[in-house]
Design a protein around this nucleic acid. Structure first.
Lengths: 333, 333
DNA sequence: CTGAAAGCGCTTACAG
DNA sequence: CTGAAAGCGCTTACAG
């Protein structure tokens, strides 16, 4: 496929490359109607499409951004990606999707490759393993927005849920339903990932505020593979919790598998709330009470912040954007 | 962030740009150890990363591919994207994800933009609205792989499920469970989208082979919003179906909502199988019998085919790659 | 074993 | 109103 270049168009239209370029960039200021017509005709005849790469090299921008998610299997990530893609498409940007699998090394590779490819900015669900690398980006004024996770050491605009409130809503609702022994299970706290840490913190605060006892045995952050064991442990306590809050959708899935196998009755034997609204919440038996994140809006906002940064050189202050969780009461509580 | 260029490295190492370039491309054939050392030191000192865009312009390849999905909401699409991303990452390619929303115009825009951005190839779940545009790509020998859908007018490598077999497995299983009045519901047949058409065809063949009556009232292809009406219609027939096959995951969701609201007992009042294994299949009550697509393998294969094409100029014959469906028997039948 | 030169396909100040 | 020239940051034959 012999690519048509601006040179070919220039020749056919009988003008110079410069003039074609002016036309393409809509700098018609001093262009005669006559010339415009001829150029247009030549472009159509040849089926010319400008080479974006060449333009990018010259202009030092690619109109491409990247989103690096920590774990594409979370429904939250998928929704955010979708929203980012939508917003970018509306604004003439393309998005490269990368999945770091919560592995700092994979993440570092992506970041380096993406910089080499000259993406104009990145939206990242950061692991905490590449602080130095991010620091370089920040210092170099590279457009960056974090989602879901705060890295204390860095000042980067971050979009995330009001996690404490999310948990508070859930705990208060349990309380209203008469529960006092309430547990919480999240995925591993090992890397101090923001939503997990904040949800645990929020849990403690909420329990305290609502006058409920905070017991260590009711608070667990473990890998997905250990959730079964954790439930075995919690439910065989002398005083087992009567309600459990699942820290995210994947944890919720594991809990549901568990109660299903053991034929544990929800909500009579155990009440359940999950953070993250899941697509099957309404068809599960019983319908699941959840705390939804406005994932779509959050993704959109992240994209919006990033594109603003890209267009404005330096945007000034750094902000943490907290989004409101929404309790959706159904039948599992 | 002042970008370091090959020129800066050359200056520091005291050699020419050419030599740096040779080094970067590992053409060490005649390079002295001494020079290598100096170059390496200079690169490290400056933290130099080559500009991929400049290289792309010269080499006329970007090591970037795109995947355009018809509808990112299908779990199948998400899995395919994931697999493509994995495979590409292993092979030094980046992937741009686009969501055409089954809208030919949006699709056409993407294709044009992506070509302008010089992506090396595309994996597409094609709508049937851009045959001419695809023809140009094919004629120009542009690397292209279709997934999920065959466009008869075009000869393009295509990766998809053995849809007839998938349906056959489901129908035979219904039959073994004693069902004779079996219905099938898919999304709209208006655009003659391959999996829908083939699943309906497969249904007719299977019913015939198994000696069951094929009745038009039991066969529906409608938009998701009409599935409720369709079920109302089917189930109020004098002889309503006792089993229904859902054409994909989204249809299955709608059916599940319906039976849930009406408190229809699965499988006693109505048996159910869905094409596409869904994450909640095992936690639904009852556990759902499904026909799974090997989505991950399919995505991987598509990526593999595409990268081979990209590396080999013209790959010769065009093939349709059919993947084996797998019936997973659970409790909804 | 290494360097000078041309070129990839654009854009952009500047001259006329 | 339009064109010649330089340049974005690389790679690649070719010369020496």
């Amino acid at each position: 496929m012999k690519r048509i270049t601006i040179q070919d168009v220039a020749r056919l239209a009988g003008v110079s490359k410069s003039t074609i370029s002016q036309y393409l960039n809509k700098r018609y200021d001093y262009m005669s109607e006559e010339t415009k017509k001829r150029i247009e005709a030549a472009i159509n005849e040849l089926g010319y499409e400008p080479n974006f790469i060449a333009r990018s090299l010259k202009q030092k921008k690619t109109s491409t951004i990247a989103v690096i998610v920590a774990n594409i299997l979370h429904s939250f990530s998928t929704k955010v990606i979708r929203a980012v893609e939508d917003y970018c498409n509306e604004n003439g940007f393309h998005v490269i999707v990368c999945n770091a699998d919560d592995d700092p090394e994979k993440e570092a590779n992506y970041i380096r490759m993406l910089r080499a490819k000259q993406v104009d900015g990145m939206i990242v669900f950061p692991t905490s393993g590449n602080i130095q690398l991010y620091k370089e980006l920040v210092d170099g004024n590279f457009p960056l927005v974090f989602v879901d996770r705060i890295i204390q050491e860095l000042s980067v605009d971050t979009v995330l849920l009001d996690n404490e409130k999310a948990v508070y809503l859930a705990i208060r609702h349990f309380r209203e339903r008469g529960h006092e022994r309430i547990g919480i299970i999240t995925t591993s706290l090992h890397h101090r990932v923001t939503p997990r840490v904040e949800r645990i913190e929020g849990y403690k605060k909420a329990m305290f505020e609502l006058g409920l006892a905070v017991r260590d045995e009711y608070i667990k952050g473990v890998d997905l593979t250990y959730i079964e064991d954790t439930l075995d442990f919690m439910l065989s306590l002398k005083e087992p919790p009567t309600a459990i809050l699942a820290g995210n959708d994947l944890v919720l899935m594991e809990i549901l598998k568990y109660v299903k196998e053991r034929k544990i009755n929800i909500p009579d034997d155990l009440a359940l709330i999950g953070v993250d609204d899941v697509p099957f919440a309404t068809i599960f038996t019983p319908k699941l009470t959840t705390v939804a994140q406005p994932a779509f809006e959050m993704g959109r906002r992240a994209a919006q912040l990033l594109l603003t940064k890209i267009n404005n050189e330096r945007s000034g202050l750094v902000n943490i954007y907290r989004f409101e969780p929404m309790l959706i009461v159904r039948d599992s509580t």
